[in-house]
Design a protein around this nucleic acid. Structure first.
Lengths: 184, 184
DNA sequence: CCCGGCCGTTCCGTTTACGGAACGATGTCA
DNA sequence: TGACATCGTTCCGTAAACGGAACGGCCGGG
């Protein structure tokens, strides 16, 4: 369309925001017209917003996300940085830390490029890892007894032994990784 | 315009965003003029932004936060509400939305007070839910075949049938809830 | 003292994101 | 088959967010 994607003037990812908005709307089975009307904005505005051809004001974006029942941050994540840990294969972004009476938890967003493998030394006793795969196929777990999960599946293991992560097939693996550290 | 004094028209908390921007700038010992110049925006814009009297576009806000070295989400979190969905028993806060080729995912932080129960109607076909429990004991899943998970455990089920969530025992249940919506 | 520089705010003309209306496409029913 | 509703996109006048310039206030140096 208008701008060649080669030289993107750095800025918020309007196209990505548009894609997320459209996905959220369609998940809910709502029409563009209906959402625009409920949000009190013009159809033209929402149309241009979803196609990524506008640079919305906060107020406009808020009206839409509120109508879809998601926080503003749900559509603009990916813009800006969080703490990202990079290994030989795995890139993990810390989303949140939960501290409970008996244990603490770290929740990561994880990406494993196709055809790559990474191994990790044993953690402390009792540490467990829980992975839910979004896309691709992941083999992970103890090196001597790995598990496999495809999109939509979940695996977990005790990581107090050497363990690893590997993508299987041609697709990048995307997943959440939850690590549980028992108190002590 | 400015005045709508009694009832604040629901929207992003412009005043709060302005306060956070100004705080971030002053923490760094930078002048308004300097930040505006570096961000490539007018001083008038930044001034109005910090005082909460403007409704910035995403691009403008991004230019400023990028210059301050923080993600966009750093200034808008808590603005207009982190969307928390409350049911009869479950309080769920949406942490993030992941959109993939074949499906999209919503990741929630979930709390179930002791001794409470909630049921949910069936979702669309193919929707699955994945729960990892941090604290307490949770019984959840299809009403006719519920599953049980204690701290550190994970359960998942197909939620295209009526399903429910209930805390067991005296402790509040804390968990993450990941809902998968297949495309189509 | 006066001057030059920088501060943050206000004024103002320009740019652009906004919503309403018109449009072609598609689906449903008599 | 035509009448009608609703879909999402495009056109266009208007409202408002934008950047530049001017303003008063505050310092430090000559």
């Amino acid at each position: 369309m208008s701008t060649s994607p080669s030289t993107v003037p750095p800025g918020p990812d309007a196209a990505g925001i548009g894609r997320r908005l459209r996905a959220l709307r369609e998940e809910r089975g709502l029409s563009l017209s209906l959402v625009a009307r409920r949000a009190g904005i013009g159809k033209a505005t929402l149309s241009g917003l979803e196609s990524g051809t506008r640079n919305p004001t906060l107020e406009t974006l808020w009206a839409v996300t509120a109508q879809l029942g998601v926080p503003l941050t749900a559509v603009i994540t990916g813009a800006g940085g969080g703490a990202t840990v990079r290994g030989t294969a795995v890139a993990a972004t810390l989303l949140e830390v939960f501290t409970e009476a008996g244990a603490s938890y770290e929740l990561y967003r994880m990406v494993v490029p196709p055809g790559t493998t990474q191994t990790s030394p044993a953690h402390h006793a009792g540490v467990t890892e829980h992975v839910t795969v979004f896309a691709g196929v992941l083999r992970a777990g103890p090196l001597d007894a790995p598990l496999v999960a495809a999109a939509g599946e979940h695996i977990s293991w005790c990581s107090d032994v050497p363990h690893g992560y590997a993508s299987i097939g041609a697709d990048e693996v995307r997943a959440t990784l939850l690590i549980r550290y028992p108190r002590g």
